[in-house]
């Protein structure tokens, strides 16, 4: 931290100032002049929170994608299909058992198994053949999409959140005062989105801990840096690959349950999430978990702020970020050069 201060004094000052402004924007009651310029505080804080929660969902999907790419140099274009299939399986389990929580392990395990099968039967034999891998993963995604259309049809599915998470909760952020009584008005926010944000933070921290504090994490990091060297030092690289692929796939499946709860599942969602994952890892840097978190946050915020403050250009905003990153930092914000 101190080293960063020393090396980039100007950037550090800007970051600190920005954090203060942001904190003030969140916690202060806005003066009327500010409201006149950028609208109500409620809208701003909502867009901020929504951007973060949407970013959390994108992070869950993209972290598995980036991990698999970083380790195996395998651009798995069927990742979106794993997301959607996980959502459908979660839906079936949730409606069958009536338990929302049970949907998560069910989706994780089943999609992790599918990932395992894919790695063992398909990708293992295509090691290092980029073009074949790309074509085959596109093929798999098309086959999976048609199979899902066959089983679940074109209907929209939502996974019902449990009673305690449906509806909004009152947060501690004050958005204004009642004109009649002077009592403070607090921001109401959907409980389910807060729960999902919490879950994403826990998973993100857990992944960071595993990668940085455990032996298997060490293998993975070493594999990202130099695969040949790792295998030469006696580690069974194929086993590490299988574990990581299964874990990354399982994460996508679990993200499907999250997405199915606060959005919905239907044909077409697979490609939508594949595209957003691609943007996230390009922005964040291929193979980097903190990069995926940063990229997901940026994309989520861009989408939500864009939809409120500049609806006409909301669609291009995400891609504008991608273009800027590619132009000035082609390896991604957190990527290694």
């Amino acid at each position: 931290m101190r080293a960063f201060w020393k090396r980039h004094p100007i950037w550090s000052a800007i970051l600190v100032a920005a954090s203060f402004v942001l904190l003030w924007l969140i916690f202060a009651i806005w003066p009327p002049e500010l409201v006149a310029v950028i609208g109500k505080k409620k809208v701003f804080v909502n867009a901020l929170l929504n951007g973060i929660t949407l970013g959390a969902l994108y992070f869950l999907v993209a972290s598995g994608f980036t991990l698999i790419f970083g380790l195996m140099r395998n651009v798995n274009l069927a990742h979106g299909s794993l997301y959607l299939l996980g959502g459908y399986i979660g839906y079936e389990v949730a409606t069958l058992t009536g338990s929302w929580l049970l949907a998560f392990p069910a989706a994780f395990l089943s999609i992790a198994c599918l990932g395992l099968v894919l790695q063992v039967l398909v990708f293992r034999h295509l090691d290092g053949q980029d073009l074949q891998q790309t074509l085959i993963t596109i093929g798999i995604s098309i086959v999976l999409a048609d199979l899902m259309l066959w089983v679940w049809g074109g209907d929209f599915y939502q996974i019902l959140a449990p009673e305690m998470l449906s509806g909004p909760v009152e947060t501690f952020i004050q958005t204004g005062v009642k004109r009649s009584t002077g009592a403070p008005i607090f921001l109401k926010y959907p409980a389910v989105r807060l729960a999902i944000l919490l879950a994403a933070v826990v998973i993100g921290l857990g992944m960071w801990l595993i990668l940085n504090r455990t032996r298997i994490g060490m293998y993975v990091r070493a594999g990202v840096d130099d695969r040949e060297m790792l295998s030469a030092s006696g580690v069974r690289v194929q086993l590490v690959f299988i574990c990581v692929f299964a874990f990354g796939a399982g994460l996508a499946g679990m993200a499907g349950v999250v997405g199915g709860t606060f959005q919905s599942m239907a044909p077409g969602e697979d490609t939508r999430f594949l595209l957003s994952s691609l943007v996230v890892v390009i922005v964040g840097g291929m193979g980097s978990i903190p990069g995926a978190a940063l990229g997901a946050l940026l994309v989520g915020l861009a989408e939500q702020f864009g939809s409120v403050y500049m609806p006409t250009y909301a669609v291009v905003l995400t891609f504008l970020i991608m273009v800027l990153v590619l132009a000035f930092r082609p390896q991604g914000l957190m990527g290694k050069g």
Binding site: V43, N46, N50, G51, L54, E269, S307, T312
Partner: peptide
């Protein structure tokens, strides 16, 4: 106005 294919409306709803 929202683009066709929008899936997260939370901010629009707040606005």
């Amino acid at each position: 106005w929202v683009p066709l294919g929008t899936k997260d409306f939370a901010s629009i709803i707040a606005a």
